[in-house]
């Protein structure tokens, strides 16, 4: 599973444990988007969802993508994470030009290096809390998968609920499991799509705390979509979308 153009990159050194970006002042762009547009065909011709978005997120940065409903936030997130392909423009994710990768190569790129937190949690209903965290670890073939999963469940304060299925957990608890799942593989980027969208204000606030605390201690790049100002305010930068155009990128 070597990346297609690995020759251009420095060879891996020592053991396989990854090199981490953004440490000791060296700065890498975790995600770069140039001239990003997304159009979808509709009955009345094609509709522009995103137009000419330019973006660069450095490794270790936190970025909030904000905007009204339908402004293209989630579409942008999906494109940046390599879940979809843009109509025009270019994305470089973790040093790879996504346009040059096929679907499977993009999946390989995501494996273990990118974590996700969703508005609707996306936990598998048949699996327990612990097993849901275990899933990406098993998929990436970690030898210490079980210990890691238990460790992360403990970090989000749910060690006592390891055997419970999502149905037996509250919304807040489910989202904590999802956050643990996102960080469990020690990813370089975590994408979060409206992580507090399905939660009440109090629970949402606690989830934000947890997310940022874990993010700070892991030094992960965090890109989140939200229309919650409080949440956006916690990020270093903010990209505001209006009708598919990136209007401002203000430092928080």
């Amino acid at each position: 599973m070597t990346p297609p153009d690995s020759a251009q990159f420095p060879p891996r050194q020592g053991d396989s444990d990854p090199l981490r970006a953004g440490i000791r002042g060296e700065s890498y762009a975790a995600v770069v988007a140039r001239g990003l547009s997304q159009r979808v065909p509709t009955a009345d011709g094609s509709l522009a969802i995103l137009s000419e978005v330019e973006l660069a997120v450095q490794a270790g940065e936190t970025l909030a993508i904000t905007g009204a409903s339908g402004s293209g936030k989630s579409t942008l997130l999906g494109l940046l994470a390599g879940l979809d392909q843009p109509s025009a423009g270019e994305i470089v994710l973790l040093g790879e030009r996504l346009g040059e990768l096929d679907e499977d190569a993009r999946a390989r790129l995501r494996a273990g290096r990118i974590g996700f937190v969703f508005q609707s949690f996306q936990l598998l209903p048949a699996l327990s809390a612990l097993e849901n965290i275990l899933l990406p670890l098993e998929l990436t073939g970690r030898a210490d998968a079980r210990e890691r999963a238990a460790h992360w469940l403990d970090r989000v304060g749910l060690a006592a609920r390891a055997g419970h299925t999502p149905r037996q957990l509250s919304g807040g608890e489910q989202q904590r499991v999802a956050i643990a799942r996102a960080f469990a593989t020690d990813p370089e980027i975590v994408f979060a799509d409206e992580p507090t969208g399905n939660l009440d204000a109090d629970t949402g606030a606690r989830i934000i705390e947890l997310l940022f605390e874990l993010n700070a201690s892991a030094g992960t790049t965090l890109i989140l979509v939200t229309h919650d100002d409080a949440l956006a305010g916690r990020c270093q930068r903010r990209l505001h979308l209006v009708a598919g155009r990136a209007h401002e990128a203000v430092p928080a």
């Binding site: 251009q8 420095p10 990854p18 090199l19 490794a59 494996a111 073939g141």
Partner: peptide
Amino acid sequence: RPKGECQAAYPLRAHPPA
């Protein structure tokens, strides 16, 4: 790591294949 070797590129990191 020597500095400047991968200015444009991103440091390689891949998990062992599943």
